[in-house]
């Protein structure tokens, strides 16, 4: 392994980690308000499609990203209404979103582009180097010559950590996930916060999906999310429901993905599928080592009924 191989792996790690990180942050905001949303895979799928279509028609990746966010929010509002207002089971409803959103995405794609033998492609978002920092030898091009989405995502991690630990609004927000009744007696709008969490979750998961079609792959294919929504769920657990922890977990999964691709190229006569398994097997192994379901918001996944004692 020489220096260029290592640097290309680091570069790929950062690139691979961003979509998972965005989706994991979506789940973090959701679960901090007590909303377990396993529909991330579906939200990311619809976000990926919206991002692709709008980038294709307008030519602007930023419009694509915003469209992804909007699509994610729209779909997640179904989840929000059913789980917050109707007190439906979070897991079951997340599953329903996982069925609805990809079906919707593939339907819209067929209607818009036909059964397409021709390959639809978009131009990816360009990287912007940060002047000064990108000239640092070795590390500069790796960390400071990325697309703006990468910078924004990492900035969001910092914001999230500060928000949940250092701000009154963040503590209030967390209290909804820990003990909604107590939060309500302090005058916090529990239902409103839960809805807000679903808006944030939908937006971030949608952006995570849109990232795939605006910064990562030039085409939209069915199953482009390929389990990232579920890996993000694992990342939140592994990251112990904190911004920094989630970042580390996602970097780890990004590294697995990067290594996997690297190993596939230098295939040693081993069927390539074994390398493709690495991120999924790593998720299982890492969770098995980290263990414990006891951490995390106390009222996670529980319905909130105002009048109930």
């Amino acid at each position: 392994m020489n220096l260029s191989a290592i640097s290309s792996i680091i570069l790929a790690t950062v690139r691979m980690c961003v979509p998972v990180l965005l989706i994991a942050l979506a789940e973090l905001y959701s679960e901090r308000a007590g909303m377990v949303n396993i529909g991330l895979e579906g939200l990311a799928a619809i976000g990926a499609l919206a991002g692709f279509m709008l980038t294709y028609t307008t030519g602007s990746t930023w419009v694509g990203i915003l469209a992804g966010a909007a699509a994610g929010i729209l779909v997640n509002m179904i989840y929000a209404f059913a789980t917050v207002s109707l007190c439906a089971n979070h897991t079951v409803y997340g599953m329903a979103i996982n069925l609805l959103a990809p079906a919707l995405a593939s339907f819209i794609y067929r209607v818009a582009f036909g059964n397409g033998s021709s390959l639809m492609q978009v131009e990816l978002m360009r990287g912007i180097g940060i002047p000064g920092l990108k000239d640092i030898p070795f590390l500069g091009p790796l960390l400071f010559d990325q697309t703006p989405m990468v910078y924004l995502t990492f900035a969001l991690v910092i914001f999230t950590s500060v928000f949940f630990n250092r701000s009154k609004a963040g503590l209030n927000y967390k209290s909804v996930g820990e003990h909604p009744k107590a939060a309500a007696t302090l005058g916090i709008n529990v239902t409103g916060t839960k809805y807000l969490s679903c808006v944030i979750c939908g937006a971030l998961a949608g952006i995570g999906g849109a990232y795939l079609t605006t910064c990562y792959s030039t085409t939209y294919t069915e199953g482009i999310v390929s389990g990232r929504g579920f890996i993000a769920l694992a990342a939140v657990i592994f990251g112990r429901w904190t911004g920094g922890g989630v970042l580390l977990a996602c970097l780890f999964f990004g590294l697995c993905d990067a290594l996997q691709i690297r190993l596939q190229v230098s295939s040693l006569g081993v069927p390539y599928q074994f390398f493709q398994m690495i991120p999924y097997v790593a998720t299982v192994v890492v969770l098995a080592i980290a263990g414990s379901k006891k951490a995390g918001p106390k009222a996670n996944g529980k319905p909130y009924r105002k009048e109930e004692r």
């Binding site: 890996i231 769920l233 069927p271 398994m277």
Partner: peptide, 23 residues
């Protein structure tokens, strides 16, 4: 034994099984 969320594990194993069939 480890108190893990069975949903995540079983989904991860779906991908592993699909890839194994691919092998």
């Amino acid at each position: 034994t480890r108190g893990l969320n069975e949903m995540i594990i079983s989904i991860m194993l779906n991908y592993v099984a699909t890839l194994f069939m691919g092998v």
